[in-house]
Design a protein around this nucleic acid. Structure first.
Length: 599
RNA sequence: GGGGGCGUAGCUCAACACGGUCAGAGCGCCGGCCUGUCACGCCGGAGGUUGCGGGUUCAAAUCCCGUCGCUCCCGCCA
């Protein structure tokens, strides 16, 4: 190898670093061609690396050999350039560019990779998301996605440091795990060694972390990947990341305090926001009654009120029927600034219908005494007055009414509260409101299965005072569980767990599991509880959702490097894909279609 | 499993309600010109299975049915 060819042109500067102070210096830059301006003789190109842009000038007199190559260049090609930093003439500086006072006059240029024409405009935000996902690596180059990944990285760092400082130990738990048919659908992994048996990917490290409490770890945390084979949403991916933690010898408020401290630190260091502690705590029942959801967005008002009693003797037959059958009438007062066009009422009626509401009634207060709307000819003067007083409505305000079963009326109006806030631009940006929702019901009745199912999970402890209700009135039993809500997004949930094996067995029993079945599914846990497991509890927070909110993003896909589509496929790699026949034979499985053809 | 929105050139979109002219525009791409641009400019050109399959019709991008993909929501997500 000659001396010449061994000469290494390693980068001397980043594309954001040079200024007029460097004038006259020999530098080597490397990066992508961000844009190209070929004037026939002289060629200008903006070179981009992960830090910034620098203009490079290719002058035919000074670089005759490379000038021909430069003509072939296309945007997003990768090049290395050696050259001299030159101050630009006064009238040719670019004040919009950080390095706009200088340019690098190329004396040597190497095309490392001549890029094919881009399949889409990299900076065009209107490009279809499917195309951007297919070329995710191209989207990342210019979309600000990398900044979001940096934000995510730093958030994880702070979380790790916070828990480390508080004496927590990060423990990794298995990805190949055991299927438990409760809860979400499992992703299954067939076993080659054990014919006909399967691992499951963890929906959460729940049981392992409780076993770590039995192990004496006392303070555990993990930034853990979780998998759930359920239908997706803007804030749900089939695989996602939880900040998972568990503590021994604690009560509910110890956990809440620990988490509040962590969130406060993240908000301070990531956004420079000082969030006041403690976060407000709201009963599940109150959240439902006032906001129609268990994850209320507290950045704005617009609370629901109940008007059932005021309209108990109404002549409006639809309402009368609902009241007679034990339903209720909930109202959502809206300021007149939220325009209720006919089209909007139609749209919102359809939305209310998605929640099972059979209708949506509106009225407008023309003044204190007079209302407009379909109820105008049905409501009496005192009824109007009562509704007005209850809703605090003023002249020009609207009231939306849903009469139905309580859950339906509340959840439908809860959703319309969000629609109205958006439509009326009532949501302050740059504001962060946290709240704890506490005292969830322990159980709900599963109509399909015809039995009780846990609202959180089967290891959740009832609140002490409600223990007796487990026999008398299971649905009335409150759980010692809590959710944390940030700007209307459920960030995470946790609970105090059951650490008494007898109570745990009883719980399984209430859930309709016989002794044999519960031992088969959860025997390992029950056994551990019997060998000296301390009282414990913990929480899991959705890291993707948290970072999404910190980044001001609309979907968790925007804070995940390689997300999946709403149908759980990866457009970049094409996963999931077919497997070789030899592969599934080795795993003792066959696609059903194949079996049918054979059988 | 159910409902809403979208699918036309490489990209973004127009033409679609009321079926009928060669399916157009901007950007990108290709060729030519251009030595101070920074959204460089100017001239010329190529590029289409209107997602796919079927139907109605003399005639379908347009109407109907089915299907696939993306997306939002309900159910689901212990």
């Amino acid at each position: 190898m000659t001396e010449q060819s061994r000469q290494k042109y390693t980068r001397t500067h980043g594309c954001n670093q040079l200024s007029s102070h460097n004038a006259g210096e020999q530098v080597v830059l490397a990066g992508w061609v961000n844009s190209l301006r070929n004037l026939g003789g002289v060629v200008f190109l903006d070179l981009r690396d992960r830090d910034g842009l620098t203009q490079v000038v290719v002058n035919p007199e000074e670089l005759a050999d490379a000038a021909e190559d430069v003509r072939q260049l296309r945007e997003e090609s990768v090049i290395q350039v050696k050259g001299t930093v030159r101050e630009r003439p006064e009238n040719m500086r670019n004040p919009d560019m950080k390095t706009g006072d200088i340019e690098v006059v190329a004396s040597w240029l190497k095309i490392e990779n001549l890029a094919a024409p881009m399949p889409f405009h990299l900076e065009d935000e209107e490009v279809g998301e499917d195309l951007r996902l297919q070329y995710r690596y191209l989207e990342m180059r210019r979309s600000g996605l990398i900044d979001k990944l940096r934000l995510r990285h730093r958030t994880s760092q702070i979380v790790r440091d916070y828990f480390d400082t508080s004496g927590f130990v990060e423990v990794e738990t298995p990805i190949l795990s055991k299927s438990t048919p409760e809860g979400a659908r499992d992703y299954l992994v067939p076993s080659r060694v054990h014919e006909g048996k399967f691992y499951a990917l963890p929906q959460a490290p729940q049981q392992y972390k409780q076993l770590l409490m039995a192990s004496g770890v006392e303070k555990y945390f993990q930034i853990a990947r979780c998998f759930r084979d359920e239908d997706l949403r803007a804030d749900r991916q089939p695989e996602f990341t939880q900040v998972d933690m568990e503590m021994s010898f604690v009560e509910r408020d110890d956990i809440l305090t620990e988490v509040e401290g962590m969130i406060q630190r993240v908000m301070r260091e990531m956004l420079g926001k000082e969030v006041p502690l403690p976060f407000p705590r709201m009963d599940y029942r109150d959240a439902m009654a006032r906001f129609g959801t268990d994850k209320p967005d507290l950045r704005f008002g617009l609370e629901l009120v109940e008007v059932t009693e005021h309209l108990r003797d109404t002549s409006f037959r639809v309402f009368q029927k609902v009241i007679d059958s034990g339903g209720c009438i909930k109202a959502l007062p809206l300021p007149g600034s939220v325009q209720l066009s006919e089209r909007r009422i139609e749209d919102w009626t359809r939305i209310a219908g998605e929640y099972g509401a059979k209708g949506l009634i509106w009225l407008k207060f023309e003044d204190e005494q007079t209302i407009k709307g379909p109820l105008a000819k049905f409501l009496t003067e005192p009824e109007i007055q009562a509704v007005r007083a209850e809703t605090n409505a003023e002249k020009g305000d609207y009231v939306l009414l849903v009469a139905d079963r309580r859950e339906i009326a509340e959840s439908a109006l809860g959703r319309l509260r969000m629609e109205a806030a958006e439509a009326g631009e009532l949501i302050p940006s740059d504001r962060y409101n946290f709240a704890w929702i506490v005292n969830f019901p322990l159980l709900e009745y599963d109509e399909e299965q015809g039995n009780y199912s846990p609202m959180h999970h089967p290891f959740t402890s009832p609140v002490k005072e409600d223990l007796h209700l487990l026999d008398e009135n299971p649905l009335q039993t409150r759980a010692n569980a809590f959710d944390i809500v940030m700007n209307g997004v459920e960030l995470g949930g946790g609970s105090i767990r059951i650490h008494d094996p007898a109570l745990q067995e009883k719980m399984f029993n209430v859930l309709g599991m016989g002794e044999e079945e519960s031992r088969k599914r959860f025997g390992h846990l029950l056994k551990a509880l019997g060998y000296g497991t301390p009282p414990h509890g913990g929480i899991a927070l959705g890291l993707d959702r948290f970072v999404m909110l910190l980044a001001g993003a609309a979907s968790i896909r925007d804070v995940i490097a390689f997300p999946k589509t709403a149908r759980a496929s990866c457009l970049l790699t094409g996963a999931p894909s077919d497997a070789e026949e030899a592969q599934w034979r080795e795993l003792h499985i066959a696609p059903r279609r194949q079996q049918k053809e054979k059988g």
